[in-house]
Design a protein around this nucleic acid. Structure first.
Lengths: 226, 226, 226, 226
DNA sequence: TATGAATGAGTATTCATTCAT
DNA sequence: GATGAATGAATACTCATTCAT
């Protein structure tokens, strides 16, 4: 990984077009030749911009994720109060997703396609982001709830990230409308979810996340959750 | 597609093992050789049981989906009242998902890997299932809500199906617990989601689902949502 | 080759259908599965009738060739005079060819597909037949001609055997008409072909044919001429 | 077929060697690996020069045929009078055949191995060539003959093309001698072939050729005659 | 920066054939 | 006589990647 390829304009263009191709065809199904054809850059010429197809995927995921994190961080600054924070986060996440659908589909759907150092770095970003989202969810959990913070957090991720499977701009609400609906649904759900059983008070948080997101070889999750 | 490969015991075993391999490595990354190695059946011998790798995937998805539909149909018979129906459905869906994680991951994650007749047939099953779930969600929407039935339905699917990305039996609640939490969360969300904007009164239902699930060539969704 | 598979009714049917398949698709392109499908006999069941695909081809060629030889021998008995003999031979050859087009196409076109003992046996038949035809051609060569008997003989074979490439019953003359035209053309050609250069007097005949028809490894002819 | 592979020196070498291999072993029996071994180009490297084995065959046939057409066109320019024209054509055809035996065998013998666009393009060349040859044959047909122009034309093709089955440079006349003999034989045959039955006066020519060369699905000829 | 030419490793699939029943 | 189940060997082709220029 030594020297990460630097990020100039042309690379930016390649990443954008590649993301669309990966989103459409799937990472493994799309060939570097497809990218060559689409970008107009010769097959070997592409390797000036990335050193492997896997690095290309990494660059897409990294760039996309970092942009998302920047926007979220900026957005949360103006939000006061737990509910406002969570609403803001949902708005930004969905707004970014809808505005960058190919990249976000690739980020969500091709989590397992990276390995080694690349996987580790994206995983690091994901871990931070999951912790951040969880940090916005937990304050809204009723004190006596039986709802796990972890379950609730991933339920929210599921709601939001699944959209790449069904959302169609032409017939569904726009990003703002979608965000409002999902925020209403989820926040009302949290408020109303007060229950019987044991909660997850014993949860130490950081360590739990770590394990939850670790690559579990042979296990199903493989830590790929956003 | 003429004559679908028949379903005997040995084929059943092959499907089960292949589902695990596809879940672990991804459909396109897994080679038929991998399946040969895992099952102990020779490479060419496998082709006695299915006529292409794609048919193998289809058989897995079809069998898995049909089993799910049978269980759901049976479960709903004993459920009276809208809320009980939706709770039952969530229980069965998640119970089946957790009990058949590899198959369900393959069903959820490899939707785009099928084409042509195979895709059409699985899509038909999905359309029916989405309609059924939506039929359980709609009665619980408050009359004055601004929440789209379609959005709510896919939010639920997202919550549930996303679990293949994060759920780990050893540290998360069991299927029943998961179902209760998700049902509490979602149903409370529905109840509390009363809002401002236009509702989906104009929604004719069947036709909308149809369009929503159509393969939209070049579009991102591609109708693959569960 | 020990015990040649015996020739019963069912085998006859298989040979006929296989000849058609080989004629249509070519020997190597046609699979034993194709023959299984066409005949309705199971794949493994076919191997009761022949012990290899190559033997099947041999049986077709042998049976076809032997039938031709029988008809020719019978026909020549009633022919008196050199020209009548040659005319008769052309009539029978073309009549048989047109009436057994698939088999004769296979015999003409798939000469190189046999090897070893099978090839040797068919070659033996071919050698005899070529000698017989040449025996009918030579008496008609003018004494002072510069036309090689060998060249003339194979020119005749070329005229006749090439028909599998162009002859269509619906728009070309029937077998009798075709035979008359070709006989007229060739016999008139022989009569008129008196020339300048050296003739083939030095030709010792049998040995020449032998060499000419031998399998010449790596050479082009490969002895496959009819 | 979009962009036909371009024709450089190395490709020329590959075509030449491949033609020999196809002539020796037959198109379907020869593997691309054989060609790799013979040419010294790696298996995958070959696909830089053609995009499928079938295209390779097409390129061989096309290049060979076009060269033949060029030579024939040039040769006929200096020929005056019907007989001189036909003699010239036979000389050039046989001279080219003998000088390019592997290619011409492949052209003659592997007519059915091409399909679709490839087949159509070679067929177009063949149609033109057949028409040209027929145009050289017809003026020599006696006015009262019963010999069909079509039959005569294909008889000539049969005589000439069949040589790949028997001709051996070491023991047969050279190309010039062969041409003289075949021309003598065929032209004398035409002159002497005056007969009884209906001639082909009703023949409209171009349309007849067209039908005769059409691919007749399921029929034996399949239009592959040269 | 960029590319044409090349390659080793791998892919799904087909094939003729066998054997226990 | 006949077949379902199985297989080893081969096939055409693709892929990510490299390297001399």
């Amino acid at each position: 990984m030594d020297e990460p390829t630097r990020y100039d304009e042309k690379l930016g263009e390649i990443l954008r077009q590649s993301a669309t191709i990966f989103a459409d065809r799937g990472f493994h199904q799309a060939s570097v030749r497809d990218i060559s054809a689409e970008t107009g850059v010769s097959l070997s010429g592409l390797y000036y911009y990335f050193k492997s197809k896997e690095e290309l995927l990494f660059l897409i995921q990294q760039h996309c994720f970092e942009s998302l994190l920047v926007q979220v961080a900026a957005g949360l600054e103006g939000a006061v109060g737990p509910e406002a924070r969570l609403r803001t986060l949902i708005e930004i996440h969905l707004g970014f997703f809808v505005a960058n659908m190919p990249e976000m589909k690739v980020l969500s759907h091709e989590a397992d396609a990276l390995a080694g150092e690349y996987a580790a770095r994206v995983l690091g970003l994901k871990r931070d982001y999951v912790a951040l989202v969880r940090g916005c969810v937990e304050p809204l959990l009723p004190p006596d709830t039986s709802l796990d913070a972890r379950t609730a957090t991933f339920a929210l991720f599921g709601q939001m990230n699944w959209i790449y499977n069904w959302y169609r701009p032409s017939r569904d609400p726009d990003a703002a409308g979608l965000a409002r609906q999902m925020a209403d649904l989820f926040i009302a759900g949290l408020h109303g979810a007060r229950g019987s059983a044991a909660d997850d008070a014993a949860d130490d948080g950081s360590d739990e996340e770590k394990r939850a997101l670790d690559v579990a070889p042979g296990a199903l999750g493989a830590g790929g959750a956003l």
